[in-house]
Design a protein around this nucleic acid. Sequence first.
RNA 1: GCGCCCGUAGCUCAGUUGGAUAGAGCAUCGGCCUUCUAAGCCGGUGGCCACUGGUUCAAGUCCAGUCGGGCGCACCA
Length: 585
Amino acid sequence: MVDAISMTLIKVNESGELPISSIPSPAVEPPKRPEWGDFSCNVAMTLASKVKQSPLKVAEILATTLLTQFPELFKQVDVAPPGFLNFTLHPICWIDVLRTIERHGSSYGTSQIGKGSSILLEFVSANPTGPLHVGHGRGAALGQAMASLLTASGYAVSREFYINDAGRQLQLLGRSVYARYREFLGKDSTFPEDGYHGDYIKELAESFAHSHGETLLEQPPDEAVAVAAQAASQILLDRIEEDLALFGVKFETWFSETTLHSKGLVQKTLDELRERDLAKEEDGALWFRSSEFGDDKDRVVKKQDGSYTYLAADMAYHRDKLDRGFDTLVNIWGADHHGYIPRMTATVQAFGHEKESLRVVLVQMVSLSRGTQKIEMSKRSGEFVTLREVVEEVGSDAAKFFFLMRRADTHLDFDLELAKQQSSDNPVYYVQYAHARLASVFRVAQERGVPLPTIEDVDASLLLGADELGLIKTLAQYPFILEGSALALEPHRVTFYLQELAAQLHAYYNKHRVLPAAENAVKSEDRPQEDGATTNGKASTVGHESTNTQLTPDVTAARLALLRQVQTVLRNGLTLLGISAPEKM
RNA sequence: GCGCCCGUAGCUCAGUUGGAUAGAGCAUCGGCCUUCUAAGCCGGUGGCCACUGGUUCAAGUCCAGUCGGGCGCACCA
């Protein structure tokens, strides 16, 4: 398609009809309205000013040349103001799409645009100081879908969870648990000012009292707190891993912040900064000259008291990621961390990498509701809805779909009532139902001894009606949706596509019968079909004079073959998002 | 004060990286099952794309400014 246009451009240039100094690469896209054909191209308008002719004139020249050059491909090439070229292919060309889907099956839609380039995808990375909440769930669903999407597009993806198991938060956890532990044993205790208030802290403390008895009381508080912190974070981390597994999210690596310190990598990172003359001593602290790379100001990495800042550890972490040889680092962060991006891109550049090698996807907050009733959440009081609770209530399919329904950088309203509803209002069921419905048709077909044909077995000319072609064209888009979605790191595009395809399928299903009625075999009729494709010479069974299509065995076979491909694409898309494609509902 | 994100139908949001007459779903009103799953379909109602200016053949999309909402601005993590 694009090649045809490029060749034509070269031809008209050589023949002198249009003197083009440089041949542009034409942009071809499906037009907004079906009446405008199968593809449209704007190259005439971009060229018009260069060749000093009106866009319409340029388009005319290209259109006639294209049509005479490629008669077997184009049925029609139209020119529309202000200078669009609209192409209509011979309908029969579209049948190739179905053959492609049938041939590739579950791999239909995958590509190699990533060319094997390696990506480290870091997401969730919740502190092991409490259970995962819904916000983490959104990040988890997004990361998981993104990983599948990128893998399907030819990238080598590795998923990683960064464990913040060093520093103040963990100490606070230890002090919280220790305080509850003393409380439980009837000793006096002072709960830390901004400690963790959730009930899970009490549970941890109690189980701690059972396993350790009163032994911790005999230790100095500092040591006891450290022991409590260690034990509690390990348990909480295990639960996080469990919750994620339950949600269908897995990581190749769990990277512990502590190992950065124990291996001396933080100090090494700062040493390297000095070597590169990107560090400075000031006010008794060590600073990273991040402003050299566009940050607002320089940042402290080693405090006056000699301890490292969080940034220092994070710099060491990102340096380590790059040292492991990844081409691109993708981080999924909560939107409240956006101010951190300049620091991190500065880090990447400080160690000699392009700033494009770090891509940060920001995820906005999730607010929960039941119908119109909002559910208040406050982390301070420890009253927030956990991911596990949501998954148990609405199921992991619905949870994932809802998390992936919106662009990452917009607020998400998650309606628990809606997610549980089994109706067309619920987009998850809507898409899954389309898949199950088709499965049911195939089941009934087999029960009645109707064979399930392949595309090669059927009379393809029976699939050239407007509704059939509409479905086929949507199926043809799928690989492009995946590609765009992967490049932009936007899985929500796949969710929207699936809803569109499902809608089209449901409409088709309601309008056209596939199997003959159970008792009296051939009496069923479709509603009038649009004229057009049926004028194609081969379509002998499609009565040109009659506006109705008889549901002959040939028609049944052709439609079955078409619908199998629809089902394949529905299944591929759902699977990619980590959502099940049920055979029955 | 500075920086980032957002502003599209009554509500929740898409908008193919600058294209033609801006689209869905919800809500609301009215239809469609003796037949392959009604967890479905068909039709009606709804818009100053926050505002102003600029860039060009073309702006919801890019740039500048204004207004409004959210979030950041630590030798915290």
